[in-house]
Every structure is written in structure tokens, then in C-alpha cells.
Nucleic acid binder design. Structure first.
Lengths: 262, 262
DNA sequence: CGCAGTTTTGATTCATCTCAATTTGTGTGG
DNA sequence: CCACACAAATTGAGATGAATCAAAACTGCG
């Protein structure tokens, strides 16, 4: 979906706002996600708070939610390790996956507006997130212009990401959606130092199909087709992109008539 | 689409940041969109700045863009009167309408992240917007906690809105999408004091179809069908919802198998 | 009043869904 | 470690919704 959304991410370690004064276990400055994260901006201007940190780490086992729709909104969550999915529930109980998040990406931003989360975030594998109390973050952002800008960028990027998904759902056919999805994963893995051509899907076909707005069978067929034409290699959840250029080309052309590219 | 998104809106009048000190033509406090807007929060806490205002009014004639994709990001825009559409351009030149905005709604938030707009906002009728310089807004928000919260809410609501559209595009069939669209307009008109059952569409069928991710012919057929079954009355762009309850019911049931409502 | 663009309607084709069966994978307990 | 039971994924065949191609009706405008 959408060219680049290796989102800069928000995170923090330790706990509480007074962390500004006390030296916490692991400061944001030393966090491994430093440059993907909120403190990125922080560091630029505010090197006088080397130990700044907000939020605390929390482990999630496979299937465990970070938060559920309806929960009061208090935190936003930065993925430190692992893989999450977010899903929205329709009124009739059916749900739709709205995104997959990997290290350095943020979930929970949708809760700000209404005071409660309207989506659910679930770990697709054992993961670790950094819980950031939003009101503390806001307060801190007040004092740190670069942090404030970073927060706004993160929210803005989420808006862009969502709009990219809209474009994909509105304009691409099933097979193209899958290609866009795979290419998007590829980019995100690449930007994290992993192989862009070979990776492991953490989500089920069902979850992919929900995200892409088609039925599981259709996704399965699309996988098979791309394998048959030699564009990808599939071994259960292990994917290898055999010809990224050709895959991109399939997105760049309106194929049968609908619009292309994400 | 999506229950409520009569977005609180950001606006301002006059111009420049120094407006904090000089008395501008029309202060936010006296703006007719006051309670839909950013100053909403402002007023709660900061009654000591009765003349506060940022941004300036700008008229747009039908078809005129407030900004274009690629333009450097400097302002966000609150619709004061009229009707806008926002659209994203795909790599191959095709475009997709990503939203329609009416009085009290904000456009341009997607530009924050990358420093340039990645969508285009165009007036669907003669309109007036309030241009708010974003960096000034950020600076002002720094001093006004309630304004800051309001800004975050607005961004968060845009995220929720987009996710609602994702759900619609991923889960509903053409006819259901149109119903969701009409019901959404209905709510937004209602929240502005207009009739929820009778209104004028400002956008073309083409634009509706782009937004809903289907072809024009399909939208036209969906209109005709809903008319034939007595759910709506259509006279060109004038729409009357004859049975809102029944329309909602069609969204609440997985119809032929796909997911409904959202 | 006639032309150009938009909207509607019709007929057909095609993509995706649906239903159903099969295969493959996974976890559990013997 | 194997066998079984259950879940996930694939494949097939047919039904159906939406796209496509084509043309007619309508709308607005000079």
C-alpha cells in the first residue's frame, strides 16, 4: 500500500513523567529505535535532557491485545520488537484489519479524538511495545518543540498511510492489492535492515485478506498465480520476491482497466 | 461513511501570528464556526485572549484548488462555507477522491509529515476557507493547552475517519457504500442544522464513484435501485432519504455475504 | 436550439465471491 | 514420536456483482 510508511515512531522506556528528573532504566536516547522514534526530534534540540524517557516497556504474547476498542484512551504504543495488527469492528461484529505494525511503528493514535480506542491492537507474535502515556507526552511535547513536531509528523504519516490504503482499496484489483501489500512489506523490512526480497509473513491469509478487502480464497489464488508466473516463491508464510521490478510494473499499469499503483 | 465525523474544526481569521497582539478584523471568538473549531478549546482556558486569531479567510471559486499535491506544506485549511473535495493522485495519473469536506472540517493535515501536500483540495462550489499557517498554529498551541488538545483531536479524528472509509471500501458492496455515503452526509448536514433527509449533492456522480471505489455506472445504477425500491427520491443532485431506518438496516446486515456497517 | 458533458440504461464480459472438497499444517495426548 | 483432530490454506466449479462497452436520455450553456 502506499510508497513509504516506514513510520517514524514514538516510544519511550521506563515510566512516568518525572522521568525527566530521575534517571530511568533505559533512556530514549539509548533506545534501539532512537532514530525511528519521537526522540529523534528531541535529540536535535534538547541534548540537555540525555536521560529523557516516557512510557514503559510491556511484553505481549501472541494474540494478546495492547488495547481493545472501547478501552479508555490513555496510552499510545510504539512497537519495539515483534508484529502487531490493528482491527476495527463493524457494528455487526465483523472486523476489518486496518494495519500491520512492525518495530518502530505506532498504534493507538485513533483514541485521541474520542477518549477511547476505536480499534484493537493485537500481537501477531511475541512482541514488546513501549507504552507512552499520551497526556504526559503532550505535556512534554509542550516543552520540546522538536518532540512536538515529531508527534505531529507521526500523526500526519498515519493519515497519509490510511489514505494510501484507501487508494489501494478503491483502485486496485485483488492481485494488485496483494502485490502492493508485499512490496510495502518489502520496503518496510528493507528500511529496518532486513532483506527486501525474502521475509516471513507474521499474519494469516485470513488477516491479509481482511486487510486487503477480499476473501481468503481470492488471496490464496493470487498467491498461487504470482507463484505460477514466477514472480514470487511461497513456502507457507515464507515469501521470496523473485522480480521486484516486474511486480512494481504490474502496479504501474491500469491492467484491465482499474487504476494502478497503490 | 463511519458514524460521526462532523469534525471539530480548525480555523481562524485575519492573518499572521502577531494577531495575538494586534486586534484582527474578526477574531476566532466571534467566528461563526467557533464551536466546531480549534478555538473551542481555546476559549475554555484562555479567555484572556479574546481577540486571538490565526489564519486568514480566502475565497475559492468552483473548481479552484486550496492546495495541490506537491505544494509545499504551509497551511491547513478550515472550510467556513461551501464544499471541498480532496483527492490523491496515483502514480499513473489516475486520481481517487479521498474525502468531501463541508463547513467546519479541516483539510491539509496530510502535509505535516513530509513537508508538502500529497493530496489536492478543490472547491466543489464557491467556498470560503480559513487558511491557518501551521507553524504559527503549532507555536500558539504550545502556549494554549486546550488548543493543543484540540489540534490533536482533529488529527485523530481524521485518522478515525480514514479508517472508517477503509472499512467501507473493504467490507461493503457498491449499493451499501452508497447508502453509507448518503447516511454520512445526512448526519453531517444534520449536525450543522440542515435537514438530514433532504439535501443537495455538491459532487458529481463521477466524484462519488471515485470516492466509493466503484465505476460511475455502478453508482448510477445504485441510485436508481434505491429509488425504485422507494428508499430515496432523486432529482439530479437533490436527494431525499425516504426511510433512514430502512437504509440503516441495509448496512446492519451482511446482505449477500460481505460485511456491513462499520 | 443545438452542442458538449453528464447521467442513466442496456447487454455482455470478467473478477471476485460463494459453496464445497481437498490438502496441508499444527497442537495435543497417547 | 506418532496419530488424531482441528485449523489454515489451497483448489475447483458455479453464481453473482461490478466493470466494460455502447448507446440513449438528460442537463446545462452559449
Amino acid at each position: 500500500m502506499h510508497a513509504e510508511n516506514f513510520e517514524k515512531v514514538m516510544h519511550g522506556l521506563g515510566s512516568g513523567f518525572d522521568a525527566l528528573r530521575t534517571a530511568p532504566p533505559v533512556a530514549c536516547m539509548r533506545c534501539t529505535l532512537r532514530d525511528l522514534c519521537l526522540p529523534l526530534g528531541l535529540m536535535e534540540d534538547e541534548l540537555d535532557h540525555p536521560e529523557i524517557q516516557i512510557g514503559k516497556r510491556r511484553k505481549l504474547v501472541l494474540g494478546q491485545p495492547a488495547f481493545r476498542a472501547g478501552d479508555p484512551f490513555e496510552m499510545i504504543y510504539a512497537v519495539r520488537t515483534g508484529f502487531l495488527k490493528t482491527e476495527m469492528l463493524a457494528a455487526d461484529g465483523r472486523s476489518q484489519v486496518t494495519g500491520f505494525q512492525m518495530a518502530g511503528e505506532v498504534v493507538g493514535l485513533d483514541g485521541i479524538g474520542e477518549g477511547f480506542h476505536n480499534s484493537t491492537a493485537i500481537a501477531l507474535e511475541d512482541s514488546e511495545v513501549c507504552q507512552v502515556p499520551f497526556n504526559e507526552l503532550e505535556a512534554l511535547a509542550e516543552q520540546e518543540p522538536s518532540l512536538r513536531r515529531q508527534l505531529h509528523k507521526i500523526m500526519s504519516r498515519e493519515i497519509m498511510r490510511d489514505q494510501g490504503v484507501m487508494l489501494m482499496l478503491g483502485a486496485l484489483r485483488a492481485e494488485e492489492r496483494l502485490i502492493a501489500f508485499l512490496l510495502n512489506l518489502s520496503e518496510r523490512f528493507a528500511s529496518r535492515g532486513y532483506s527486501p526480497v525474502e521475509f516471513h509473513l507474521r499474519m494469516s491469509r485470513e488477516e491479509i485478506s481482511s486487510y486487503l478487502g477480499v476473501k481468503v480464497e481470492t488471496i490464496s489464488r493470487a498467491f498461487s498465480y504470482l507463484r505460477d508466473v514466477g514472480l514470487i516463491a511461497v513456502h507457507k508464510k515464507h515469501i521470496r520476491l523473485l522480480d521486484i521490478t516486474a511486480l512494481k510494473a504490474r502496479l504501474a499499469t491500469p491492467a484491465t482497466g482499474k487504476s494502478p499503483r497503490f
